[in-house]
Design a protein around this nucleic acid. Structure first.
Lengths: 118, 118
DNA sequence: TAATCATTTCGATGATTCTCGAAATATAGG
DNA sequence: CCTATATTTCGAGAATCATCGAAATGATTA
């Protein structure tokens, strides 16, 4: 029943930018297997490279610093993972983060918190 | 199976600000009954006033324009409803908006979209 | 109608943020 | 070791945003 250590506001904020939301939509639509290590760390096994994300989102053939910046923000919020695989960087969504967000919303749907009522 | 007309990015963005998230948390913790009209419109039946929200969030005894601004943004994104009740304005969460967000997240959890895979 | 209460709008200021191009870093291959 | 490839960091400009106090609006009460 641990309140997981995700920063809910930071994740919402990361998804609040239209460009980042499109990046995230592409990542989750792309088959992104992840491996959960003993430490609990999650790392992508396979997923699109930064260049592929860039291509899908901007249509450009080369990598833009803008997409790199957005990926960094998504990663810092915990929503995605990025790890080097040879020459490339592979991206994948962090399912645990999605679960945390879903739980937050479910919490509000039920209003179970029973907080200070007026 | 209608793609509801909520702007997902706008809702995420609205929840991305810490102050707004606290406002929203208070609103959903507060017993906020809503009535759904025939038109599909949702309006709060009972809920905290702007002044009460202000008190809970800022601790101040008077209404601040900052909270009013944040409430407006939450309302424009569709997350909450605000309606006049006599001298006061009553706030309530829009359950339909929460459902839309939850569905969006579930969608990504299942990766049902089957979008362009790499 | 005057006065009061509740809330929003206006105007301004400082801080973030999104975006872009150029330079820097890191890895692989010859 | 040198070059090519993939990606990030740096620096900057324009835009947006959060916050605040003051003024304006809307509704109730006297």
């Amino acid at each position: 029943m641990r309140e997981n250590d995700f920063d809910i506001a930071a994740m919402f904020r990361a998804l609040g930018d239209p460009t980042r939301l499109r990046i995230f939509d592409f990542l989750r639509s792309c088959c992104c297997l992840v491996a959960v290590e003993e430490t609990g760390a999650v790392r992508p096994v396979v997923g699109p490279t930064v260049g592929e994300v860039c291509c899908h989102v901007t249509g450009a053939e080369s990598i833009t610093s803008t997409v790199s910046h957005h990926l960094k923000e998504l990663r810092l919020s915990g929503l995605i993972t990025v790890e080097r695989r040879g020459k490339n960087m592979l991206c994948g969504v962090n399912r645990a983060a999605l679960t945390a967000l879903a739980e937050y919303l479910a919490q509000s749907a039920n209003a179970e918190t029973g907080g200070d009522c007026c």
